[in-house]
Every structure is written in C-alpha cells, then in structure tokens.
Write a protein that binds this DNA or RNA. Structure first.
Lengths: 345, 345
DNA sequence: CAAGCCTGATAAATCCGTTAATCGGATTTG
DNA sequence: CAAATCCGATTAACGGATTTATCAGGCTTG
C-alpha cells in the first residue's frame, strides 16, 4: 500500500541505494550526480514517499526515542505541578535534539527489563522516588543508558547517572529564614500518607537537625505534625496553644491545605502563623497569602538529566555520575516575624 | 552482541520458527511438542533472550504505540492541572491495553505528516485548541487514525473523531447558579493573552447569551474584563464601583488570580464578590475560599477519546464521529448570595 | 602503455523476527 | 490397501530501509 523506496527507485529508474543516498545517506560509497539527485527528489516528492521508520530503525539499530518512567503514573493527575515541570524539562531537551519521548507505565520489575531491552528505547529517564534495593539492582541491570531523577546515588558506583536535589540544604534555608525573622519554636508538617516518601523523611530529618543547630530547638516528636488535615484536627491543635509560630511543610500541597485550615480556623496569616512550602511552582503565587517556598530547580534538573542521557547515548562519559542540585528559597508573603507576647519583649 | 532468535534456535537445536512459535506465535502452521517447547523456553531464559521489537515491528507492521500531540508543549508546565488529567486519562487507557504512549512535540505542519506516516504510531490523540482551516486539513490528511480532543467537528465529515466539552452549557450552569442566588449584574473575566483561545471566546459568548436569557442582562463590552491582573488594575476597577456582584472566570487559573487580587484589595470573599472558575480540578480545593467551578470531565473525555482511538485502530467504526460532553458545576465556597443594598430590599 | 584513480552507479548482504508453504512419516479412515 | 489426516518440525520468503563491496568506463600520470 504505502510507497516504498523500491517503488521510488523503479519509478526513477535507479537503484534503491541511490534513492536512499539522495534522501538521507551520509556515507560516500554511493555517489549520485546532481542531475539524478534532483530527479530522484522530485519523483519521491510526487509519489509522497514516506520512509518507513520501522525498517530504518531495524537496519540502523536506532530509534531516536527515549523513555520516561514515572513512579506513580496512576496518581499523576492528583500530583503537584512538579510533574509537569519535570515532563516539560525532559521533553523540551529531547525535542530540541530531534528525539521522541515515550512515557512508560509503571511496570512489574520483570517486565521493565524486557521493555527497556527490546531495542525501542535508546535511553531512559527514571523518575524514581522510592529507593529500595530491588530498584537499585534494576537500575544496575538496565541494558540501556539510564539517568535516575530524584534518587541519590548508591554507595557502589554503577553506569547510571543520578540527579537529585539537596533536600537538607533547602530545609536549612527555610529554618534559617524563620530564625532570622525571630521565630523560636517551629514545626514540620506532612500528611499522614507521605510517611513512605524518602524525600519526606529526608526533609523531616533535616528540619530537626537545622532547628537544633540554628535555633537550639531540641528534637521533639511533637514538632512533627502528621495529620490528615481535616479542620477539627487543626482547630484542636491550635486551641491547645502549642506555642509554634511557624510551620515548614514537606510539600507545596501540604502547605496549601494548611493555609486553608488555618484560615478557616480564624487565624490571620502570616501574622499568627508563618508557613513555608517545598517546591515553589506557579502554585505558590495562587495561594492567599502567596506561599514562601523552598525551590527545587526541577526543570533545570530535568534538563540536565536529559542532556546527560543524550551524551551517554552517544557514548560520552559524563563528568559526574551523581549530581545534587542545591535548593533555593523563594520568599513570598506567607512568612513574617512572629507576633504576640513572645516577640513583644 | 544481543542474543537473537537464531542464537537461541542454534543452542536449542531447532529452527527459528519453533522458537518464535513457542515464545509468541499464535498461528498453528508451526507446531511444537510440549517437551521441545519447555526446552526452548528454558534455553531462551538461560540466554536472557530479549526479542528485538524493531524486527518484530517491521515484520508485523505494528508498534502498539500511539502518539499524543499537545498544542503548546512549550508552555505546558505553566498550564493548569487540566493537562495532567488529560495525560493521565490517555495514558491509563493505553497502558491498560498494553499500548505505549509517545509524546510528540509541536511540529511544523510539513513535519507532522512525515512523523505520523512513518509507521511508528498506530494512532494519535491530537489535543488541539486552535481550529484553523490548515489544521482541519491536516487532520483530514492524517495517514493514521486520529482523535481530536477539544476541537469541535468541522462541517464536512472526515474519518477523524472529535471529542469536546460543551462550553456553552457549562457557562450557562454557572450563570444559572448565580441568578438563583440573586445576582443581577455579573461579569466575565479572562487574562488578556487568552483572547486567541477559541475556548475562551466560546465561553465569553455563552456568558453574554446566558446572562441575557437568564437575568435579562443586555450584552455590554464592560461586562468582559480583560486585564493582566496586577493589583492596581483590580483595585481601580473595584473603586470605580462598577456594580458587579459576581465574576465568572474563563479558567481556574484566572479565578485563582482574581481571588488573590480581590483579597489583597481588601474584599471579603465571597460576600463582596462571588467568583466562579472553569475546569474544577484539585486546585479548586486549595484556594481560599474554595473555588466554585464549572467542571469539565477531562479525564473521562480523554479516556473516551483513547478508547475510541483503539477501536479505530482495530478497524471498528465508531458510533459517533463527534461527541460533546456536558459540563457540570461544582459548587464550593466562593459563591454566595449578593450582599449590600442590592439585596437588602 | 600499464597502473592508478576518480566518478557514477548497482547488486546484494544485513538488521531480526514472523509465518505461509512444505515435508517426512506415522496413524486413521473408507 | 490406498487415501486422507495429523503431528512435529523446517525452509525460505518476506518486511523496507541502509551500506559495503564491486564494477564499468574514462581520465591521469609516471
């Protein structure tokens, strides 16, 4: 049905080699005169010849396609803008380099190796938030170049490249910011179901360490709030007068929910309570008050990861097999100096 | 380097046909005894044989891959959660059916036909918001099955399927809701740069028609607010006492920005001003007050579109070549009866 | 003049599975 | 007993491009 290179060759009265050379070829073993070349181009155009990529892929063993694996595609849409920045970062670099992007579903581990080893993908960006031993093994066994986003490098080196952000430094910036504003007792908040996220745990630990170092706040289980964030829980907690003047949230979304609960409970923000989020996407501009947030350079990270992957595919050894991006802090309107007796001295 | 089917066949002392049949084949022209079959499976396993998908794709002329074209991938991350729901909807249906999803960049029109006609994609979901003649022509010429999301069907029928939501009915619901609450003068808001979006225009027109029909509000250019939404603009407008008690926004994002400007300008929401958004994603739960919003069943639309596409690929003729989904209205906390003299009679 | 080189072009191998056609021989059926 | 059937398996023809090896013929060059 479709026009093949043979059809074009026959119509032009030349060999398929000539057609191939004229339309795409780079080698110089096949030579075609300019006259013939133009004829061939014209005939191909007339016949609406579209080279069959499947044949070409097989022959050249290249597909110009890389895969992207999300850890939790199922709950993708419920997730924050974070994922969109990630996708945008990966995609834009690929497209600029004339690569295609294939989204892979979350697969059973057995299936993954089959999927990655079937020749259809030249490389893969694995956006992996959990870091169990099995996953590391899988990354190690991966038959194609792989870059792991948001996974810290394992102890033993592999051929995989690891790109992550420095959660601890980000949290430290937030604590520092609050300490400078005069806060002396701050809490860390996450929603109950986030306990399994290693990012959440890392940020929590960093919170405790930084709070101790920068404001002498001894670690105390009560400083870590893990609710499901319905209004009663918040109202009860606040009524118990726990004495906190600021809360650092593990994520943007948690911070957004907290803002709502606090507002509903009648607090005046940020005077009664300063709130800091984590991620700093466009969402932070839409809250009231606008959310001060630790910024993770996710788009940059995604771009770096993808560029590195393209280099790996071309056989270039990367300078670093592990890169950690520092976080920043975008100060907006949800943080201020604490009010009340504690500050009136 | 990689293990091929011939390597396995040689190691097992059988023909490649036997190996192929045992591992994947469905035809019954090739028959293999159970004993041999098990031997072959075992040897393939031992050798870590991974069938080369490129060869198989070429032979069978199938790839089990469909493409997804976004209109504006570049500004993707700046967009609303809408896109994530769309992606999630398309992806989940594909993955359930063991298809792969390839994201395509926005291409020049000339390149698109080449991309879609090279055999790598079995079908494509085109998420197209602009609807110029050239695009319709392109959809018409598309060499593979295509479903257009968010594009109304053209007058002359094509083989493409069109899926869209009924903007007009959604806006009508919003106006009706406000009218029932007692509002008598309402406005429509969009950000200046949205003028080019046909969705935005459709919603604006529907607003004017519904406002006239349901509350006798004659169309007036002043009812359509097109700002770039800095605080001064809003404050000035409000101070001029325009008399509006409610604003319907063309999108969720616009509504979110409006909430912030209004709050910053000292308005009490929703008492001073009722606000309605459009799309109703999880974002609406995060605003203060929580945003009443027209709901577009985007995930459902995406699923329907994708299922239809898979049917098209299998040669099944769809019942409808055009389907419009009705919108709903999710009433939350950003709308209430108007206060002030207008309601005190 | 023989040897070497350049131009323009082709034939054929190759990438790696899939599958229709075929085949020997044993068994069943009329 | 001849013919039909079935089992287990192989051979070889694809699919559609890329690319190496090769060739004919004309032109240089020592």
């Amino acid at each position: 049905m479709a026009v093949t290179i043979r059809d074009v060759a026959k119509a032009a009265g030349v060999s398929t080699a000539a057609v191939s050379k004229v339309l795409h070829g780079r080698g110089d073993s096949v030579r075609v005169s300019d006259t013939r070349a133009n004829q061939i181009r014209e005939i191909a155009e007339q016949m609406h010849y579209r080279p069959n990529a499947l044949a070409r892929n097989l022959r050249t063993q290249r597909t110009h396609t890389v895969g992207l694996i999300f850890e939790n595609f199922g709950s993708f849409a419920a997730g924050p803008l974070y994922y969109m920045h990630l996708l945008e970062g990966v995609g834009s670099v690929l497209f600029k380099n004339h690569y295609r992007l294939t989204i892979l579903p979350e697969l059973l581990h057995d299936d993954i190796l089959g999927s990655l080893g079937d020749g259809q993908l030249e490389g893969v960006v694995w956006c992996k938030l959990t870091r169990d031993a099995e996953t590391l093994q899988l990354i190690h066994d991966c038959p194609i170049p792989i870059v792991a986003l948001n996974a810290p490098a394992p102890a033993e080196p592999t051929d995989a490249v690891f790109v992550a952000c420095d959660n601890a430094s980000g949290i430290r910036l937030a604590v520092e910011h609050l300490a400078k504003l005069g806060h002396r007792k701050i809490a860390f908040a996450h929603e109950v179901q986030e306990l399994t996220s290693p990012d959440c745990l890392e940020r929590r630990d960093a919170f405790q360490a930084s709070a101790k170092e920068l404001m002498g706040q001894e670690p105390n289980p009560a400083d870590v709030l893990a609710w499901d964030w319905h209004l009663p829980e918040f109202a009860d907690w606040w009524k118990s007068d726990p004495g906190y003047t600021a809360i650092i949230c593990w994520s943007e979304r948690t911070a957004g929910t907290l803002i709502n609960r606090a507002t509903e409970a009648g607090l005046k923000l940020p005077e009664d309570l300063s709130i800091v989020g984590f991620d700093s996407t466009a969402y932070c501009e839409t809250t009231t008050p606008r959310l001060t947030s630790v910024s993770q350079p996710i788009s940059e990270m995604a771009r770096y990861a993808t560029n590195t992957l393209l280099n790996l595919i071309q056989g270039k050894r990367p300078e670093n097999f592990s890169l950690t991006f520092p976080c920043g802090l975008d100060v907006r309107d949800s943080t201020t100096r604490p009010s009340g007796p504690r500050n009136s001295e």
